[in-house]
Design a protein around this nucleic acid. Structure first.
Lengths: 324, 324
DNA sequence: CTAACTAACTAAAACGTTTTAGTTTCGCTT
DNA sequence: AAGCGAAACTAAAACGTTTTAGTTAGTTAG
């Protein structure tokens, strides 16, 4: 084990400071050999304790099993890995206490940076992170009172455009199915929808806008949707998230309403089921690679040049994919 | 900040050893108050360094965005949380080096236990973990040469039953679409299929068994599937994983082959798309809650009573859900 | 009145690194 | 032959806890 060398020397060699500290190449060789043969691995915990950083970036999202988030996670992970960072991810399920617990957990483990799809009620925790000088990037949703780095999509334009597509096809009984989570980007999806209607002289009926509680069971959501469909003579529906669209498709199936003829549908984000569905389901596609690229670029920027505390906001357009 | 108390005393109070160490209740109250007001949080890294454990369990799966794994992850996470453990999960994408890196990462961070859906080639690393006396539970696939704890499903029976279902419906040109990952449970799915055929006097044609490389692009998989469908007069297909079934459904759609009439289909595991599909897709359902429950029970058992090193193997039956 | 015990606390070591501030030993100048 | 700088190393402090082994003061038994 011991190579009759001081532990200081070994540390220098491991951290690539051998030259700088003028260690002879004979010793370097010897130590490296011993390390290789003994399979020695530095204790990262002791390292983190001493250095104060962990080379870990936390990714906090609503639900990692949602393909929108898991795809972005994968993309971010690959890039981060190349720069020596490891991503650890977790889901909040849009529960404030859960998110707070997670942030505390990560804080107490000295995570280096945070990528968060936030929820209302998390402002204080996030501000604390910023105060502690930890890089934080919000994405998917912003907390406007916070002045942080943000990467997101122009949801207003996207849902305006989607709604307009219905109108141009001659639809006029257009419903919007949205979540009830209280966050600017979700409201923007409503605003775009409303603006498109009024711009084309269609009255906005508030009963045509469904707000579905986030943690409601799918069975209840389907009930809610069927209620809407049966009572409101809906001829087209814009779903503000992919999982709402899934419930919606199930509701339509149960009512035996034909998509394309009786009713038109546009969903937000992708899902295997949309491609497979007959007929294909049109979707508002957020540019995942572009989002991930920008997030990782921002975060690596913050991580390397620590001093400068500029904040950047980046809004990217979405793309409408018409499938049927 | 300081409450004119020694840091030892504070540590005792935080760790609930106040009584045992006979600290007066006056001091306990005072310290607790100060902790509350200052928002003090113990540094977990220092803690882990000293105690040698982290209260973290690693969950290593093939792909966390696959609903089979993400559902199990969610179930395990909830249970673990209740016992003071946090789960951190990652995906191997069935790459050995990636899995090795992950295990090393977790090792160097003193993770307390491991739940792994393993791959061939990981035997050595896992044996090392066991040697270091870390609890390890394998699930979904076993590494038979290893004598570890394992929770899994009777894949032989499941695919036997699925294949038999086709036969009873009068199908005889039955194809099996499987992955090429080299692991006992995947082979069992083939064996069950073959046994069912021979038991019913149908010859096993090796061209009717497709082995799809795990990291192949979906486009290529679809090509491969269409090739099979066009040349082999297939009248029914058993897909050994959910994502293969998705590709299969796309292939069938592109060839405009009608499910239920021209061809019957059974998929492994659930997916939103199977429920939504018209007609519904029958599936072999693994009992997710039961799997998760057993995993967590085993791991908590190992974690509490450390000494005893018994290994348990648990094989659970799957359930066939006929949907069309 | 002293020895023994207990209640209430604390000093200091230990965990495994990184990093600062040295210490030796040479070889070169002058 | 003294002084100096560079090369090649290392001792020890520090990170923030937990835990062992005390210490001190007060109480009780004999």
């Amino acid at each position: 084990m011991k190579a009759n060398v001081s532990i200081t020397t070994v540390s220098f060699i491991i951290n690539g400071k051998a030259k700088e500290k003028s260690i002879s190449s004979a010793v370097i060789k010897k130590v490296e050999k011993i390390i290789r043969e003994s399979g020695y691995m530095p204790n990262q915990i002791a390292r983190s304790l001493r250095t104060g950083h962990s080379n870990i970036i936390a990714l906090i999202v609503e639900d990692i099993s949602n393909s929108f988030f898991s795809t972005i996670a994968r993309l971010i992970e690959d890039k981060a890995y190349q720069h020596g960072y490891k991503i650890i991810y977790s889901s909040t399920e849009n529960k404030v206490e859960r998110a707070q617990e997670l942030i505390n957990l990560f804080k107490s483990r000295r995570v280096d940076a945070y990528i968060v799809a936030p929820i209302k009620g998390l402002e204080e925790e996030i501000q604390q992170l910023i105060n502690e000088n930890k890089p934080v990037i919000l994405f998917d949703r912003n907390l406007p009172e916070l002045n942080t780095n943000y990467v997101g999509v122009n949801h207003f334009a996207a849902s305006y455009q989607a709604t307009e597509t219905f109108i141009k096809k001659g639809r006029s009984r257009i419903a919007l199915v949205n979540t009830d989570i209280d966050v600017q980007q979700i409201q923007e999806r409503s605003e775009g929808y409303k603006k498109a209607l009024t711009d084309h002289g269609i009255e906005v009926e508030k009963d045509m806008i469904l707000r579905v509680p986030f943690n409601q069971s799918e069975a209840d959501t389907i009930k809610q949707l069927k209620q809407l469909l049966k009572t409101k003579q809906v001829d087209s529906i814009l779903f503000a998230t992919n999982y709402l669209a899934l419930s919606g498709l199930k509701a339509l199936k149960q009512l035996d309403m034909k998509i394309g003829s009786e009713v038109d549908v546009i969903a937000y984000d992708g899902h295997e089921a949309f491609e497979l569905h007959t007929p294909g389901i049109s979707t508002v596609q957020q540019p995942l690679e572009e989002i991930a690229d920008n997030i990782i670029r921002m975060i690596l920027g913050k991580l390397t040049k620590k001093g400068v505390a500029t904040t950047q906001q980046m809004i990217i357009p979405a793309k409408l994919v018409i499938r049927c």
